[in-house]
Design a protein around this nucleic acid. Structure first.
Lengths: 212, 212
DNA sequence: TTAAAATTCACGGAAAACGGTGATAAATGG
DNA sequence: CCATTTATCACCGTTTTCCGTGAATTTTAA
């Protein structure tokens, strides 16, 4: 591990970006080698330079944080990645971990947590503070509310998206050129899987899991 | 106007708070007299101290920014208030203006915009940058998509919330102890007002406008 | 005070959703 | 290769939504 950690910061909120760089610049052993306002910009920077650590926001326009992390991991598995997010949804945290982040902290944590996260991650450990673990734990216990085991097929996702666009069963059948009965079967399976009581529940699920 | 502006900063994201104070502290004519993590804390500080300017986030847990601004305006109309938000929804901006903010900037604007906003507001002007005005303009032209003229009554909001909780018309009637027919009338009025095709559209509206 | 809006209620018919059951063929995965 | 999942389709009965129309009472605002 180097004496000085070279860091790339990615966040679409310019003000947050300036704030965080202002904090990091006060630390002698941390060097900001670049900033980017979105995943695409960050990938361009990574073509030229290789930081020790990437600090990235998760919710960003264009190429979002999770896709960005996946993209980075597709060509480099050694760069450390710390996700900073205001997203408290366990689905997002899980997705981030699956994508390959080394740590995940919330934006409402402070400077101390940030610096601790950087230190931990740069020395090879993972960093998921109590606050983040609590969210994951809750989601595990609340199996009824946000079950992670739900796996929807592509067809089901496709139909769910149309339902969310206020299409009726008949209209979906016409759109996909299949029987209305088939759509009804898919609809029933979707309700069973997501434990939704009706279409409203389905759409809320779709929104919650960022399907739409 | 004083030589030195006394500022109270309110934001639930500790990291953002530290970032912004770090930026403001570099300015000699700005003095941070307090920070708060939510509206309630901020109101407590205001019992003891009176800043020239309040910089507040809009989306906060507990007492949210808009309610906080309204609360402040109920006992003080002279304190300047600058809203900093990542919310790009025109509804939120309108609500903030209605609540009585003197300016509204987005979190993806930079230090320069922030300082300009502070200067403008403290000298008695309002500050709504191009980016914010663009959102408002778009929403006016996009009357079909996000009509600002929709005004739902309290009863309608109440019923919409229950709809969003997957309650059927009958269940809502039982909950509110009124006729099923009445609920149907409300439902029809809601659909007409929001131009929703069905319950799905209603719930999406509710989510979009942060009703639920 | 008077007009407008909000809240309440009713009836009837067409359309859609909901629930259960059963079944076939193709694709997938261990 | 074989079990599972996926995707397709059908039927039937009940419930709910959706749509139109009409109306009375209370509350609110000009």
């Amino acid at each position: 591990m180097p004496e000085i950690y070279r860091i790339l910061v990615v966040d679409d909120h310019k003000m947050f970006l300036e704030g965080i760089t202002s904090i990091l610049n006060q630390e002698e052993h941390l060097e900001i080698i670049g900033i980017a306002y979105n995943g695409k910009q960050a990938l361009n920077i990574l073509k030229e330079q290789t930081p020790d650590l990437i600090i990235t926001d998760i919710e960003m326009p264009g190429l979002n944080g999770i896709s960005f992390v996946k993209a980075v991991r597709s060509f480099d598995t050694t760069i450390k990645i710390l996700a900073i997010s205001s997203h408290q949804s366990s689905a997002t945290i899980h997705q981030s971990i699956k994508a390959g982040v080394n740590g995940y902290i919330l934006k409402n944590s402070g400077k101390v947590t940030l610096l601790k996260a950087i230190a931990e991650i740069c020395s090879g450990h993972r960093f998921f503070p109590q606050s983040v673990q609590a969210i994951l734990n809750n989601s595990i216990f609340k199996k009824d509310n946000s079950n992670q085991n739900i796996i929807l097929s592509n067809r089901e996702k496709e139909i769910l998206k149309l339902i969310a666009r206020e299409y009726s069963t008949q209209e979906i059948a016409d759109t996909l050129c299949i029987s209305k009965n088939t759509i009804e079967t898919h609809r029933k399976n979707l309700m069973r899987k997501t434990e939704a009581k009706n279409m409203i529940g389905l759409v809320k699920y779709a929104i919650k899991t960022d399907l739409i």
